[in-house]
């Protein structure tokens, strides 16, 4: 909370220093080019989507909504996104806290892990999970060596198989904001709580978590919204029978050859995620924490 307060006071100071006598030409030259860029690249594809959706016979929107695969995919996607968000945010908080309070070797290991995941592509990280989850892959090898399991795994191309890979891909988005929030945490507040007799749980609940809450919320919103539109991980790990929304849309275009229905679904998906994002943004000021 304190960081956002400081940001606001800086902003108001900047505004007070700025004045009505600064030229408007300046604002126009700086503002209009990116706005036009956005308008073209956001509005034109949207219009094209609507056109595409309306070229089909009948009402493609109701057709899409009444499709069994679509309804199943919506349900699966929402559950997946929700679970991944909760797990990612909790793990992200632990991860960042561990970097803050750990001994040096843990700090180094965790930073190295974070950098590996930031610097390798989503594709490569998903391959890693694929190779882990294959029936006779690395996970099976490890379990076999530990004599915990002798028959091949059937995790690959199942819904549960998507979860660890999705969390792994999303985790940096939760760790980074929490790390930033922790670095501005007031150590004297923690000390004060400790001196007044607060135990570790109370310190975490009363001092640390409130300081991290804005970061956790904005990370959660971002992870949730991005998880709704995820493509690569479900495609490689979920397989054709466990498609998420992205997969269904993809299938409409590439397999069913129904670009109109795919476009209708795309509009629904965009509408859903953008509405969710806008609501969360107004409620929690997510953009202000990112921007």
């Amino acid at each position: 909370m304190s960081t956002s307060g400081a940001a606001v006071s800086v902003a108001t100071r900047a505004r007070r220093r700025g004045s009505k006598t600064f030229g408007t030409a300046e604002r126009h030259w700086l503002l209009w080019p990116p706005l036009i860029f956005f308008a073209l690249l956001l509005v034109v594809p949207l219009v094209a989507l609507f056109q595409q959706a309306l070229t089909g016979q009948g009402n493609t929107f109701s057709e899409a909504v009444h499709m069994d695969v679509f309804a199943k995919a919506v349900e699966r996607t929402l559950i997946l996104a929700a679970v991944v968000t909760v797990v990612t945010v909790i793990l992200g908080a632990c991860y960042a806290l561990a970097i803050a309070v750990g001994p040096v070797w843990i700090k180094v290991t965790l930073m190295a892990g974070l950098l590996i995941s930031l610097w390798t592509s989503v594709m490569v990280r998903t391959f890693g999970w694929m190779l882990m989850e294959l029936p006779t892959g690395a996970l099976f090898w490890a379990l076999d060596k530990l004599q915990l399991r002798s028959e091949p795994l059937n995790l690959y191309q199942t819904t549960p198989g998507m979860y660890p890979a999705m969390v792994a891909v999303m985790l940096p988005f939760a760790v980074l904001p929490v790390m930033a929030a922790l670095s501005s945490l007031d150590g004297e507040q923690v000390d004060a709580a400790t001196i007044f007799g607060a135990g570790p749980l109370l310190v975490l609940r009363a001092v640390v978590l409130p300081a991290l809450r804005p970061a956790l919320v904005s990370a959660g919103v971002l992870v949730f919204v991005m998880a709704l539109g995820f493509y690569v991980t479900p495609l490689l790990l979920g397989g054709p029978s466990n498609m998420t929304l992205s997969g269904v849309i993809n299938a409409q275009l590439n397999n069913a050859n129904r670009a109109d229905v795919g476009a209708a679904m795309s509009i629904i998906l965009i509408g859903g995620t953008v509405v969710i994002y806008l609501i969360a943004d107004r409620l929690f000021k997510v953009s202000e924490r990112w921007g």
Partner: peptide, 12 residues
């Protein structure tokens, strides 16, 4: 400070 900004032209 506002008066100073008015003189500098930073405040209308």
């Amino acid at each position: 400070s506002t008066l100073l900004n008015v003189i500098a032209g930073l405040q209308g």
